[in-house]
Design a protein around this nucleic acid. Structure first.
Lengths: 257, 257
DNA sequence: AACACATGATTAACAAAGATAAGTATTGAT
DNA sequence: ATCAATACTTATCTTTGTTAATCATGTGTT
């Protein structure tokens, strides 16, 4: 654990990395196209390698470029927007809800926007929850059922262990990447794990494993939603702790629907 | 599930991690902007990775906000420092802990710093919890018992309803203000309410009432800590929602000790 | 070819970060 | 026990990243 992750580049290094001028880097960060961190009283820019690689477009990206049609092709490639908040690919977030309406409040726009943007989407939930979310999704996004048929939206099926879940996602992520689907979204309704008989310890160790590998290696936004009615206080706290990415956003947007 | 914070970085590693010079690290720690631990007779600096990542600001914040905070950073009259974070008087925060050690992790420095700074401090908790906190407090702040005798530190006593709690605080706040104690701190260990037989609904309505009146009208920093083992998931979520001030800070500092 | 627009270059002023040096004291190793 | 390396503090001085403005160059599109 001694390797210091020196993956924070300053603006000069970032400019070299992308082979552009520092001025462009400044403009891109100012306009929000490229995300960066700030440090110190001079508010110097620091860049995560992944944010820079995310910023690079992939030449071989999908045949039908949904983004291109809308003319926003170059603008929002590195981010998604959820509830007006810009979220980079690579983030692994959680949200907490406490009503049946809350279950679809974030999940539906998250998936609908993803499908519209051409992202490969995954819905991990029990059959019953899948039905609730898909019904609501169909209302705002009529192409839902055809997207399921086309495997643009993939429904979880049959996984009963956290390791199985991990393998499932890794397999699909690799496969999607090979097929040119670089941008992905995962929505997990984590009460699913409980209903599958997983212990919450199991679930948390999955979250940690996922957090350090899959979530960061692929251009995927992962949103894990927790039904606060089905977890204890300590479990909710653990859920928050295993989704540290969430803390950089206004948490009130993700808590308590 | 331990993920021990075994990796304390020295100043060289910290500088490498943030991609800055050691001199800047020294300046930031000296001014209290970046928190660090000290060790040995040479008082060497040691850094938690968590603290370092917290020091990085997210670009999304409007530059005006950041400027404002920085600009008055020297003006310590309007702020306190907890875990290296500047907190304005008027804030009403919550923290979540899940171990007996976590109970004193934030509360003790919060009160110790307050007493050292001459703030009028209030400790609201059951007798048993009071004893635990006061024992730990006495170790780092020897004048604890004399401050209790002098009414610099006031211990809750005998309140059994949320309205009674509110009246109690209002009375003391007014009295303290009249006596020239403008700056105050309240530490509430909210499992106290449960042990007093309050319902969590009662507790939450108190929090909301407090949030909109006392907490904002007086120069008081209020820290409500919740033992996540004694509350349900939904209750924890409600606790978060009734302490929105918390969301403007790096939540990882307040969650899960 | 003409156009619109993104990128690069240049300037300015300011404050913060970096570099350097001197002097102490603690560590860690021989 | 000794000694060199390290980290600390304090101080001064130089360099750099920041914003903002304007202009020139280059790119891709129609």
């Amino acid at each position: 654990m001694s390797t210091i992750e020196t993956d924070l580049l300053n603006i000069k290094q970032a400019a070299q990395f992308l082979n552009v001028s520092e001025i462009s880097i400044r403009r891109w960060t100012d306009s929000g196209k490229l995300s960066c961190l700030r440090i110190g009283g001079r508010r110097e820019r620091r860049f995560k390698q992944q944010d820079l690689t995310n910023f690079l477009e992939v030449q071989s990206r999908s045949e039908l470029d949904v983004r291109g049609v809308k003319g926003v092709a170059d603008d929002k490639v590195t981010k998604i927007f959820l509830e007006g908040i810009a979220i980079d690919y690579g983030n692994h977030l959680c949200s907490l809800y406490e009503t049946d309406i809350g279950r679809v409040k974030l999940s539906v726009p998250f998936l609908a926007d993803g499908l519209r943007a051409g992202d490969k989407c995954f819905l991990v939930a029990t059959k019953a929850t899948q039905k609730v979310i898909l019904d609501a999704l169909s209302e705002t996004y009529p192409a839902t059922s055809s997207d399921i048929a086309n495997s643009r939206l993939i429904l979880s099926d049959g996984m009963t262990t956290s390791d199985g879940f991990y393998d499932y996602l890794e397999h699909h992520f690799l496969q999607s990447s090979r097929q040119g689907d670089q941008y992905m979204r995962v929505l997990g309704d984590m009460a699913w794990a409980i209903d599958m008989g997983m212990s919450t310890d199991d679930l948390m160790s999955f979250e940690m494993r996922y957090n350090h590998s899959l979530a960061k290696k692929f251009a995927v936004v992962s949103l894990c939603q927790y039904d606060s009615r089905k977890f204890t206080g300590t479990e909710i706290v653990k859920a928050l702790k295993t989704h540290e990415d969430t803390f950089q956003f206004p948490l009130s947007r993700f808590v308590g629907f």
